[in-house]
Amino acid sequence: MILLGLTGSIGMGKSTTAAMFRDAGVPVYDADAEVHASYAKGGACVEPLGAAFPGVVKDGAIDREALRRAVLDKPEQMQRLNGIVHPIIGALRTSFFEDARAAGADLVVLDIPLLFEGGGERGMDAVVVVTAPPEIQRARVLQREGMTPERLDAILAQQTPDAEKRSRADFVIDTGQGLEPVRRQVAEIIAVMRDPQRRPNRRAATA
């Protein structure tokens, strides 16, 4: 199965781009959505995180702000958190792959916001970076409820700079030009990934 990583900084249009891959018939694994679902009522992370961090479960779901406070500036607690969450999310990702194979998929997209930060690009055949001009990025993000310039700057400080992401990508999609150019690029990337003569192969290069 061909693995195509999809990443991009906050406000770049990654979710919209992922939806276009999905609309084109390519299964998409959404890492953020998987974490959110596992933190929701009945989610796989609720019970173990509640046991490890008393007070973070409210109304049967993980209170993300309470959890953030519990691990903020506490490396040992963050390590403990990751030790609980990562194996659970890993198992859910495995289920995604199994379902995609059973459906006969030859190509899947892994939508992972912190792909480069976590070194996940090494497991991909190719990586798509979604970008946009800085002024468009900031305008998009600052429209979100509760977002402030200071909070945006803090988020960006924790992410690999956009220019570096673009330099490490196999494909770059600029969402600042409207939806139709993005849709055309998505279609072309799918065609390239399914063509053995044109397809990048990071996994072979790092094997």
Rank of each mutant, 00 (worst) to 15 (best):
A51W: 07
L6G: 04
I10Y: 10
R194T: 00
R184G: 09
I190M: 11
E65G: 15
P48T: 06
R93H: 11
A157V: 02
G146E: 08
R64S: 03
T7I: 12
L156K: 05
L3A: 15
Q79N: 13
I89W: 01
V129S: 02
M20R: 13
D32K: 14
G90P: 12
L72Q: 14
A139C: 04
F97N: 09
D23R: 15
G90F: 14
L179R: 15
A169E: 01
D32Y: 01
E76V: 11
L72S: 15
V128Y: 00
A191T: 15
V130S: 05
Q143L: 15
D63N: 06
G118Q: 06
L152K: 04
I88W: 08
Q177T: 13
L92S: 11
G178M: 01
D73P: 10
D106S: 15
G60W: 14
R166T: 07
G178T: 06
D99H: 14
I173D: 05
A187S: 08
T148R: 00
R199T: 05
G178Q: 02
T17Y: 03
V109T: 04
Y29R: 01
A19C: 13
H86G: 02
R168P: 12
D30H: 10
A132W: 05
S9W: 04
Y39S: 04
L67K: 00
E188F: 05
D153P: 05
L67D: 04
G55M: 11
P161G: 08
G43R: 09
I89A: 04
A187H: 10
D153A: 12
A205F: 02
A44R: 12
A44H: 04
I10T: 03
A132E: 03
E117R: 07
I136A: 13
D162T: 04
V108C: 15
R69G: 10
M20I: 13
R183F: 11
G146I: 05
V71W: 07
R183S: 15
S9G: 10
D153F: 12
V186A: 08
A31L: 09
A207H: 10
A191D: 14
F96H: 00
I173W: 06
L114H: 05
L72W: 15
A163P: 08
K14Q: 12
E76F: 09
L6M: 06
D99Y: 13
V109S: 10
R69H: 15
A70R: 03
A52E: 01
E164N: 09
K14V: 09
Y29F: 15
Q143R: 11
V127L: 14
P200N: 00
I112G: 04
K74E: 08
D63K: 11
I155M: 07
F53W: 08
A169R: 09
K74V: 07
A191R: 14
A61L: 07
A105R: 01
H36K: 14
P27Y: 03
L92F: 04
G60P: 12
E164D: 13
R64C: 03
I189M: 00
M1G: 10
G13R: 09
H86I: 07
P161C: 05
A19L: 00
V129M: 08
A52T: 01
Q79M: 14
F96Q: 00
V130D: 01
L4W: 04
G123Q: 11
L156M: 07
V28F: 06
P27E: 06
R69T: 12
I2Y: 10
A33G: 01
M124K: 05
L81R: 02
P87M: 07
E135W: 14
Q197H: 14
S167F: 06
G13N: 14
A126Y: 03
M124H: 09
E180W: 07
